[in-house]
Structures are given as C-alpha cells and as structure tokens.
C-alpha cells in the first residue's frame, strides 16, 4: 500500500514472540504470496503452531511486523475481527460446535458475522458439505461423525466464510490412519482452487503434491526453506536431515 516494499498475502518481518522468558519465535521473516501453498514442518515444540496462530491473532507478537492481506497486525487501524473473517483456521482437534449440526456449524459465522441471508448461507453450506463428501451428514451432530468427517466439516466451516487465506494446524495428526487421506484430498482440492494456504503438517505426500515451498522450523527459528523436492531429497542442514530421518522411519 503506502509501503514501498512488495507485500505478500502474509508477511513476517523480523517477528519475535516470547512465552515468559521462552523465545518461541526468533526473528521470523517469511513472505507467502497469493495462491501460494506453504508447508511448515519441524520437531515438536519448534513453534509451528505459534507461527500460524500469530497470523490470525490467536497469539500476539512481541516485536517485528506481521502484515496480513495488506493490514499490519497490532496497528490501531487494523480491525482484527474483520481481518479474521478473511482467514480460515483448521485446528488439530477440529473444535466443531458440539451443539450444532454439521450444516449449522458451516452456516453459523456466515449468517451472524458475514450477515449473509440464512437461505443463501444454507444453500452455500449444503454445497460445501457436498463438496467435502458429506452431503448425507448435513443434519448430523459432531458426536455422530468420525474424526475424518469432523475435520472435513471444519474445513467446510472455514470455506463458508469465503476466506482469502486458510491456515491448517496439523489437521490430520489427531486422525486414525485410514481417515487421513479423505481429509488430505479435500485440502488438495482447496489448494488447487488457488487458495493461499499455510499448512503445518508432516504429510510429505501432500507437500509434494501441492506445496510450492516447505519451511522447516527448529527451536523457534526458520532453519531451512525450499521447494518440496529440494527439501525432501536434499535437506541442507543437520537438523533437517535428523528430522526427516525420524519422520521417514515410520
């Protein structure tokens, strides 16, 4: 905007974050272009969740700049509630509303936050649930759905807001192995429609298929970044090699 430097859809510039005395994000600089899919991986506790949770303000950053869709976070002029409607967030534990049906989960925010007329939101919700393969589960409650089905409802819930960005925090790691692919297939479809995505995952098949870039984090810092091909076949650092050998073993 007024800024001379080129801004991506998501722009981290020298971002730091602390939990108490723990420096969980160390001088992060990372730019995600519109329609780009970036996979974030790294060992447990390396700060992956914190990184993407900062983007929609679920965590506040301490210093540095984080610009999302042209708006600087923490700037008084930035309406965070408004910005969040443009950012879908898929949680590891789904976090569906248990007192709402699948369709109601999808239409709740569009109706009350986006102020879309109910009939229109419901039609869109039905279409989205059909798209994620759950046309027959529209009136089911989350407790009546399998983990994979719940996560697909959660993705449809985000898409119902017509977001510009989708963030995924280990969307398949709480799932039984046989349900992982049904969720990944939906994510691939979303990526292929041109969504800007940041995905924390260790699913290398997914990364190879749709990611333009893999970012490897360790101890709060981005240690390595490259195309999936480069990263998986020729990791550059000892830490990424050690990490890959661990996740490849099973």
């Amino acid at each position: 905007m007024t800024n001379a430097t080129k801004t991506g859809m998501i722009d981290f510039r020298g971002v730091n974050k602390w939990f108490g005395s723990l420096n969980v994000l160390k001088d992060i600089t990372l730019s995600v272009e519109p329609r780009e899919v970036v996979v974030v991986c790294g060992p447990s506790g390396s700060g992956k969740s914190t990184l993407i949770r900062c983007i929609n303000g679920l965590e506040a950053i301490k210093d540095g700049d984080l610009v999302v869709d042209g708006q600087r976070l923490g700037d008084p002029a930035t309406n965070m509630t408004q910005l969040r409607t443009e950012i879908g967030f898929v949680f590891q534990s789904f976090n569906l509303y248990p007192h709402k049906t699948a369709l109601e989960n999808v239409t709740l925010a569009p109706i009350h936050v986006r102020k879309i007329p109910r009939a229109e939101a419901e039609q869109a919700g039905r279409d989205l649930l059909a798209k994620v393969g759950l046309a027959d589960k529209i009136n089911a409650y989350p407790s009546q759905l399998s983990g994979g089905q719940q996560q697909r409802v959660a993705i449809a819930r985000c898409l119902g807001m017509r977001p510009k960005i989708m963030l995924f925090d280990e969307p398949t790691s709480a799932l039984d192995p046989e349900m992982i692919s049904e969720v990944l297939d939906v994510m691939v479809a979303v990526a292929e429609e041109g969504m800007t995505m940041m995905v924390v995952t260790h699913e290398m098949g997914f990364a190879r298929k749709v990611a333009q870039r893999v970012v490897f984090m360790d101890a709060g810092a981005i240690v390595e970044s490259g195309t999936p091909e480069e990263f998986f076949s020729a990791p550059k650092t000892d830490r990424s090699r050690a990490f890959l050998s661990k996740i490849l073993r099973h």
Partner: peptide
C-alpha cells in the same frame, strides 16, 4: 478459539 478465528 473457533469462534475467535471465524471473526465473532
């Protein structure tokens, strides 16, 4: 968090 993330 789900509510926050959807802009409520």
């Amino acid at each position: 968090e789900a509510g926050v993330a959807s802009g409520m």
